[in-house]
């Protein structure tokens, strides 16, 4: 292995079922159901997925959902706003832990 991420992994993702086909089938069925039109539109779900992809920093998901968002009719401005939502939550999650820091500092301080 010369690299941890290979772009062809995404196209071959189905092979993950080779040694556990029933689990893979359950997962992919569930996955398909999640992204179907529901109370949220498929376009809205793709934007959420794009944001989550950035939060979990998955290059496969970023590639897949950048394309999916365009193909669902989202524009780059909407997609960028979605990434900022991920950024804000990640940043906010770090910052709000500052409250733990403050409590610890208060406990230790005179």
């Amino acid at each position: 292995m010369t690299q941890y991420y290979d772009p062809s992994d995404l196209a071959n993702f189905g092979q993950i079922g080779d040694h556990a086909p029933e689990l893979a089938a359950k997962f992919f069925d569930y996955y398909g159901a999640v992204f179907a039109e529901g109370e949220l539109t498929a376009r809205e779900k793709a934007l959420i997925a794009l944001a989550v992809a950035h939060a979990v920093q998955c290059p496969y998901c970023i590639e897949a959902y950048a394309q999916a968002c365009l193909e669902k009719g989202s524009n780059p401005a909407e997609m960028t706003e979605a990434v900022h939502v991920a950024c804000a939550i990640r940043g906010g999650a770090s910052l709000v832990h500052g409250m733990q820091m403050r409590r610890q500092v208060a406990k230790l301080s005179l």
Partner: peptide, 17 residues
Amino acid sequence: NPAGAFLPPPQAAAEKK
């Protein structure tokens, strides 16, 4: 027509937007 190397959105959803 899509502005790039990707497929167009579903027609009904695009029309609504």
